[in-house]
């Protein structure tokens, strides 16, 4: 894996601009972290039957539309005012 190239690709996906002079340092650190995270590959691949019986799950509320949205930003008619972008 070309780490510098990888860091550039991921930074684009993450919308974070890593300055050119910092890419090498970032790639080096990233490589060491990934090598450590790769210890996950030593874990056996659990079958669904091994993992499905955790006894408690968090109940989720019903997915219902609500009409109590109260915008914080000042509105003009049907529109909300947002900061100037470009």
């Amino acid at each position: 894996m070309d780490l510098k190239k990888e860091v550039k690709n991921i930074s684009e996906l993450a919308n974070i601009k890593i300055p050119v002079d910092k890419i090498e340092k970032f790639a080096d650190e990233f490589g060491r972290i990934l090598a450590y995270m790769d210890t996950i590959s030593t874990i056996p691949q659990y079958k669904a039957s091994d993992t499905k019986r955790a006894e408690h799950y968090t109940p989720l509320r019903k997915d219902e539309a609500r009409i109590d949205y109260n915008p914080v930003r000042p509105s003009e008619g049907r529109y909300y005012r947002v900061p100037k972008v470009i």
Partner: peptide, 21 residues
């Protein structure tokens, strides 16, 4: 890209990128 680069510190950027990866 510019705002997120300057707005976030090193560790936060590292974690966002690790998660994206």
């Amino acid at each position: 890209e510019m705002r997120r680069n300057k707005g976030f510190g090193e560790e936060v950027k590292r974690r966002i990128m690790l998660g994206t990866f």
